[in-house]
Computed example of a mutant assay.
Amino acid sequence: MIESKLTELLERTGDQTAVGPPPLDALRAGAARRRHRRTAAWSAVSALTVAAVIGGTTLLATQGSGDPSPPVATATPGLVPAGMRLVGLGHAAIAVPKNWGTNELTCATPKKDTVLIDVGAVTLCGMPRPVGVESLELGRGVPQVFDFHAEETLEIDGVRAERQRTTCSDEGNFLGQGTICTGAVFIPSLDVWFLAESSTNAEEVDRMLGRIVVEPDLVGVPGYRAIDRDGKQPTGEDYAPLLEQAGLKAEFRTRKSPGYPAGTIFTAVPAPGTMVAPGATVTITVAGS
């Protein structure tokens, strides 16, 4: 995609989605009021979660991505209890156990406890979700990957959010093997949504969504695999503007890779979803000619 087409796509997307600038002053005020309460609550939750969760750290290499990205890991361990990490987009993030994997999918179905972010293309096939598996997916824009409908409103660190209540159904597991419970949160002013799913019970979904936070002094590294290039692999030139929009810097490294078009992205470090300070540098490794 040439730069003019990318710009046109971004402008068209912006026209379709009415999202104002992040209310940073309100975010900082809300975060300051709630940080001490959050720390106490998470300390109890994380102790139970880390003991109960069994998950892998092996990454699934998405189609056409080359090398798998490193696991998403928060760059700010002081903000979350030991054993947990933050994963987010923009200024919205969620705490998950460190031993959860990232994009642990088989045929688009989570096989282990996992975070799903910047998944890219996956192969669809008949694969049931195992019992006792939790997953958290997050993305930008009005939720369209599932039938989101706001049923109640709440505040997260002083920021208004919309909540879709948790429901459980055997239909969620399309092979009819077990029950899937689902719940979601959308933060309109930050343009970020969170989808929690569990084949354990509804309480696990509510527990996961209760760990969403707003961090005005941090920003999540945006993803690149979902960039729309008419079926072609995204390039570093496609990705750099998204980093700039997030207030981050792009640094390029090249690797000779016969068979890959020049500029094809292999990895981004820190990985998408990592919470970093504004102005941080993201190193993009791309295929060289």
Rank of each mutant, 00 (worst) to 15 (best):
T49D: 13
I94M: 06
S69N: 11
P258H: 04
R33G: 09
S4F: 11
A31F: 09
A250W: 04
G178R: 00
I227P: 08
I187T: 03
A41L: 05
R38A: 02
R35F: 11
A92I: 09
D170N: 08
G236F: 02
A121G: 08
Q245Y: 14
A250K: 00
D113Q: 09
F266T: 05
V72E: 14
A52K: 05
R163H: 07
D67E: 13
A262M: 05
T57S: 10
R225N: 05
R37N: 03
S135M: 10
S189I: 10
E151R: 08
A262H: 03
F146H: 07
T13D: 12
V96M: 07
G247H: 02
V286L: 03
W42P: 10
S169M: 10
V80E: 03
R229A: 06
P270A: 01
F146K: 00
A40S: 02
G120T: 05
P234C: 04
S69M: 10
R165T: 11
G172Y: 13
G279S: 06
V286S: 01
E3K: 05
A82P: 04
D147V: 13
G55H: 12
P81S: 02
V72G: 02
F266D: 07
A226N: 08
L195N: 01
T123V: 13
P110K: 06
T235R: 01
P241D: 06
L79I: 09
A250T: 01
A40V: 04
H91Q: 10
G236C: 04
R12S: 14
I187G: 00
H149N: 05
G55E: 12
F186P: 15
V286I: 02
F148H: 06
L138R: 01
K5I: 10
E151G: 13
V192M: 08
E237Y: 03
G55Y: 13
W42T: 01
C125N: 09
L10M: 12
G247E: 13
A18S: 15
L195T: 06
S198M: 14
W100E: 10
A61M: 07
D230Q: 09
A52E: 12
T114M: 11
G220E: 04
P241Q: 01
D228E: 11
L136V: 15
G66K: 01
A73Q: 09
L86R: 00
Y224G: 02
A92M: 08
V145G: 10
L209T: 04
V145F: 14
A75I: 09
K256I: 03
V122Q: 14
L136A: 06
S198G: 10
T17I: 14
T39Q: 08
P234R: 02
S135F: 14
A32D: 12
R12V: 15
G231M: 02
V205P: 14
V19E: 12
V142K: 06
L175P: 15
A92G: 00
